[in-house]
Design a protein around this nucleic acid. Sequence first.
DNA 1: ATTTGTGCAAACATTTTGCAATTTA
DNA 2: TAAATTGCAAAATGTTTGCACAAAT
Lengths: 126, 126
Amino acid sequence: MKHSTKRDAICEVLGAKRDHPTADMVYERVREKYPEISLATVYRNLAQLCAEGKIVKIGATGRERYDIDTSNHTHFFCDECGDVYDVFCPLTLNGYKNAENEVGGEITSASITFHGICRQCLAAKK
Amino acid sequence: MKHSTKRDAICEVLGAKRDHPTADMVYERVREKYPEISLATVYRNLAQLCAEGKIVKIGATGRERYDIDTSNHTHFFCDECGDVYDVFCPLTLNGYKNAENEVGGEITSASITFHGICRQCLAAKK
DNA sequence: ATTTGTGCAAACATTTTGCAATTTA
DNA sequence: TAAATTGCAAAATGTTTGCACAAAT
């Protein structure tokens, strides 16, 4: 992987505001500094960074989001505003081994996702 | 909601083989009985059935899958062949309350998803 | 000099929509 | 006959790709 100014800018954007932006959001933010960047470049670099394990894709049904924090943590999706928040507190899952027995295959990862209403939306509803 | 022959056929397909088909898979299967059905009708009915809570959508990143079993259970995605299996054994998640405290909002649901290699693919690799 | 990265436009895959015709209650 | 459903084609979305050119090693 060679060095690239555009890729740096993409990483910078991902690090600056950890709101798990979509490819399009990354594109808009990088454009403030590099107005000539194309969406294709953003997609290509995001895919490359994922492949290298430098960032992770957090599947949000039809619209992928990207997280520069690859440490083990969970995500909370607000069903009201659509924003995605990090959850760092430790969570444990019991019954994992039984699940593996049931499927007969090999479970390599378990992902937990929370849905609900975020603090702001909850306050706004009152 | 009025009665509809096509919607019945869609539900029948979903009930017959519980492999969590995509919209396109449902379309192909309904077409065996009703060759004139259009993909738009499939999508419209799937959306409607979801809204009514009769089926659930299980997000598989860019390609949605549908499950007629709305009871509480988990899914196991095989990363090798792409098939999706049910996991019915009980699973418990600890730390849920702490997560709610951390986000400050209200968690309405927690979803667990397993990834790995299914029994068949595991056997095929040997 | 060779490989890697880029912009652009076009292609692609999945899902949604407007509309006139058909079916259902 | 009024409301819901359908097929079709077109549009909308989100993402990927081919290609010629530019940048990095």
